[in-house]
Design a protein around this nucleic acid. Structure first.
Length: 548
RNA sequence: GGCCCGUUAGUCAAGUGGUUAAGACGCCACCCUCUCAAGGUGGAAUCACGGAUUCGAAUUCCGUACGGGCUACCA
């Protein structure tokens, strides 16, 4: 009887599950190797949460010498977006999240795009129908809507189950009749569960979870013959031999269904690891919510690339939210890399994680502080070539000079920490390149202080580029005394009336003249890099500015 | 409404019956100092609430509140 129905519904499916079981044999991997997967649906842009889950997939597979594959989950044509797939692969690439197998890469377990696997899903569904574990349901959407409303009023669980599942036991003749009258239908699971029974499932991250057994006749195949996520998940992850399903925790409530699907299909089920979402406290409402692409700049993956956050720094940040002990480990092992850390599901947070932009910034600053001038230059240049062509040209024309500036205060145990992203370089070192300085020069200066141009000129005259740092500072102190300034701040503070100011004020005047701002890295280094001629040029610019 | 999950400082969090309740980021103060970024020292700040178990609870149990997720022919 049910075999006849199966043949009636799927006359063109001539294979059996056995065929596919043979086609996708066990993987030849170490016992503890994890096979993970990232399964995006091509519905538009990728956000930080997606990136985070893909990052986890990568890291766990990598450290266990397993496989991390990419599978495009495009079973919903309505939501597909033009170019969506390319967008995903290019974002993964630019964020250095590299699957070892899958869509666009290849492997023995493809096709890695669900729209090309329809026949596989239908083969298993046909078998389920044959075995009396699934059935065609001809209920119209209106009928289903009515049932839902009734259930809402009666405060019952919503869905097709129990006596609502009127098409469960349709006879062959009834099915045939419905088919001939051209009715649309879906294939539903004939759920063998009983909601009175409790099931207990172990999640690798969340621990033991208890649910009532699944008893709803969930849709397996939509009216267009494509699978729902649930069915595709069970079949693909079985056939592709996924060992660990790492996914967002919006899926935990589907666990009972998925467990049942694996049972009914006779599959061994993978381990589940449901990761907590990245959230943010909404500044307007004060409530905690998931990152929103529209409201939060930093939610979209593209933001990081465009604003010049180093990928390695972002990985560091993702690591700190992935495993709560990572941050401390990294602090103690500053010479090591993420690859050296052993990630563990048990160290993964189970509540939501709030996005902390200041922490990210701190990580970025530390990242930059460990790079020497040349490295920062090269990375900034490749960023600029992508997002700021104009600046890239400036950089190329002034390579040695820029590297010299980027190297200031880089030696020693406490390297300078003032850059958080590539785009900061342009801002922070605007005084480095003459042609740029001439344009911008003192526009950022909002101090209305009077600076003694003549004094600065006298200083340039006595400036000696060959001075060591100590010599330089002694010279500036001596100069301060001659100009009526105190050579040290403390002394000045004791009796300010005795002086025009202190050595710091002298330095400030020089600094402002040279850099166009009242804060900068080490002045000695800056003067030395620029040299006397340029100091004179800048003095001329400064004069013009002050006279204006 | 139903089913799940969660709640330790501003944020991320350690913690598994006895702790002065770690640490990190942020914040504040001071020190260093030619300015800033750092760095050093110190500081403020946390167990959602109510019961129960216990000699003893952040930790176990039960309620309540709040937050999150799911409740699609989306994933």
């Amino acid at each position: 009887m049910s075999k006849k129905i199966a043949d009636l519904l799927f006359p063109n499916i001539d294979k059996t599950p056995d065929y596919y079981e043979k086609m996708y044999p066990e993987r030849n991997l170490d016992d503890n190797a994890m096979v993970t997967r990232y399964g995006p649906s091509p519905t538009g842009s990728v956000h930080l949460g997606n990136l985070f889950s893909a990052f986890c997939d990568m890291v766990y597979a990598r450290q266990s010498k397993g496989v991390f594959f990419l599978r495009i989950e495009d079973t919903d044509q309505k939501r597909a977006v033009e170019g969506g797939i390319d967008n995903i692969t290019s974002i993964l690439k630019s964020f250095a999240i590299n699957p070892t197998e899958g869509y666009g890469i290849g492997g023995d377990y493809g096709p890695y795009i669900q729209s090309k696997r329809t026949e596989i899903y239908q083969t298993y569904v046909k078998d389920l129908i044959r075995r009396g574990l699934a059935y065609p349901c001809f209920m119209s959407e209106e009928e289903q809507q009515e049932i839902k409303e009734e259930q809402e009023v009666m405060k019952q669980k919503i869905g097709i189950y129990g006596h609502y599942a009127t098409d469960r036991d349709l006879t062959y003749e009834e099915v045939k009749e419905n088919l001939e009258s051209g009715k649309d239908y879906v294939i539903r699971l004939k759920s063998p569960g009983n909601a009175e029974h409790q099931i207990e499932i172990k999640d690798a991250i969340k621990g033991k979870l208890k649910f009532p057994e699944h008893d709803i006749d969930t849709i397996l195949l939509k009216k267009d013959g494509t699978p729902t996520y649930h069915l595709a998940h069970a079949i693909d992850d079985h056939l592709m031999h996924t060992t660990h399903v790492i996914r967002g925790d919006e899926w935990v409530s589907s666990i009972p269904l998925h467990v049942q699907l694996f049972e009914v299909l006779g599959f061994e089920r993978p381990e589940y690891a449901h990761i907590a979402p990245i959230t943010i406290k909404d500044s307007e409402t004060g409530t905690i919510r998931k990152l929103s692409k529209r409201k939060d700049l930093w939610a979209g993956a593209k933001y990081y690339e465009e604003s010049g956050i180093p990928i390695d720094a972002l990985h560091l940040y993702l690591s700190t939210i992935a495993n709560t002990n990572f941050e401390e480990w990294y602090l103690k092992n500053q010479d090591k890399n993420i690859e050296d850390f052993i990630f563990d599901f048990s160290k993964q947070g189970i509540g939501g994680t709030s996005f902390d932009s200041s922490k990210l910034e701190n990580i970025c600053k530390t990242y930059f502080s460990r790079k020497n001038g040349k490295e920062v230059f090269e990375e900034t240049l490749s960023y600029a070539e992508k997002f700021d062509k104009n600046y890239a040209d400036f950089l190329k024309d002034n390579k040695d000079l820029m590297i010299a500036f980027l190297n200031i205060e880089k030696d020693g145990p406490r390297p300078r920490k003032d850059i958080a992203k590539y785009s900061d370089v342009k801002e922070e070192f605007s005084y480095a390149i003459d042609s740029m300085f001439e344009k911008e020069n003192y526009s950022k200066l909002n101090s209305s202080k009077d600076y003694d141009i003549d004094m600065i000129k006298r200083y340039i005259d006595i400036y000696n580029i060959n001075d060591s740092k100590d010599e330089w500072f002694n010279r500036i102190k001596e100069f301060s005394i001659n100009e009526g300034y105190s050579p040290n701040v403390k002394e000045y503070k004791k009796d300010p009336s005795k002086y025009k100011g202190h050595v710091g004020d002298v330095c400030e005047a020089i600094r402002v003249m040279v850099t166009g701002r009242d804060k900068s890295p080490d002045l000695y280094e800056i003067l030395k890099i620029l040299g006397k001629d340029k100091l004179n040029n800048r003095l001329e610019l400064f004069k013009k500015y002050l006279n204006k």
